Computed example of a mutant assay.
Amino acid sequence: MEFLPFPAARRHAASTVVVDSILPRAALTLAHWRGAPTPAMYQDDTSAGSVLRALRPSAAGLAQARYVTANHFDVDGFVGVWAWLNPVLALRYEELLRLAATLGDFREIDWQSPLADHALQLVCWLNAEEKARFYEPFGAPAGRRREDEASAEKFEWFLPRFGSILENPGLGRAAWEAEYRRVKQAATRVQSPATTVRRYPEIGLTVVRTPEPLPYYALFSPSIGTDIVLSLYDGQRYELEYKYTTWIDLESRPTLPRLPLNGLAACLSDRETGRHRWTFDGITDTGPLLRLDGRQLTKAQRYADPDQRPIYASSISPEEMEAEVVAFFRVGYAGMEPKRYWTWAEVREAGGQAG
Rank of each mutant, 00 (worst) to 15 (best):
M1T: 08
F6Q: 06
R11M: 14
A14Q: 15
V18L: 01
S21K: 02
S21A: 13
A26K: 08
L30Y: 00
G35T: 09
A36C: 05
P37Y: 01
A40S: 14
Y42C: 04
D45I: 03
V51W: 11
P57F: 06
G61I: 00
L62V: 08
A65V: 02
V68C: 08
A70L: 04
F73P: 01
F73N: 00
D74S: 04
D76I: 01
L85F: 09
E95N: 11
L96C: 04
L99F: 02
G104S: 08
D105F: 06
D105G: 05
Q112K: 11
P114T: 06
A116D: 04
H118E: 12
Q121P: 00
C124T: 09
F134S: 04
F138R: 15
P141K: 06
P141R: 05
G143L: 15
R146S: 11
R146C: 09
E149H: 09
A152M: 01
F158G: 09
F158R: 13
G163L: 07
N168H: 08
L171A: 03
Y180G: 00
R182Y: 01
V183E: 08
A186M: 03
V190P: 04
Q191A: 14
Q191D: 14
P193W: 12
P193G: 13
A194N: 10
T195I: 05
R199F: 10
Y200N: 10
E202I: 06
G204P: 02
V207K: 00
P213I: 08
P213D: 09
Y216M: 10
Y217C: 05
L219R: 06
F220D: 15
S221Q: 12
G225Q: 11
G225K: 12
L230F: 00
S231E: 15
G235W: 09
L240G: 09
L240R: 12
Y244T: 12
Y244L: 14
T245R: 13
I248Y: 11
E251V: 07
E251N: 11
R253F: 06
P254I: 07
T255A: 09
P260I: 01
L261A: 09
N262Q: 15
N262W: 14
G263C: 07
L264I: 05
L264V: 05
L268S: 07
S269P: 00
R275T: 13
F280I: 03
G287K: 14
L292G: 01
K299R: 15
A300F: 03
R302C: 08
Y303A: 13
Y312E: 15
I316W: 00
A323C: 10
F328D: 10
R330P: 03
Y341T: 10
R348G: 00
G351H: 02
G355F: 14
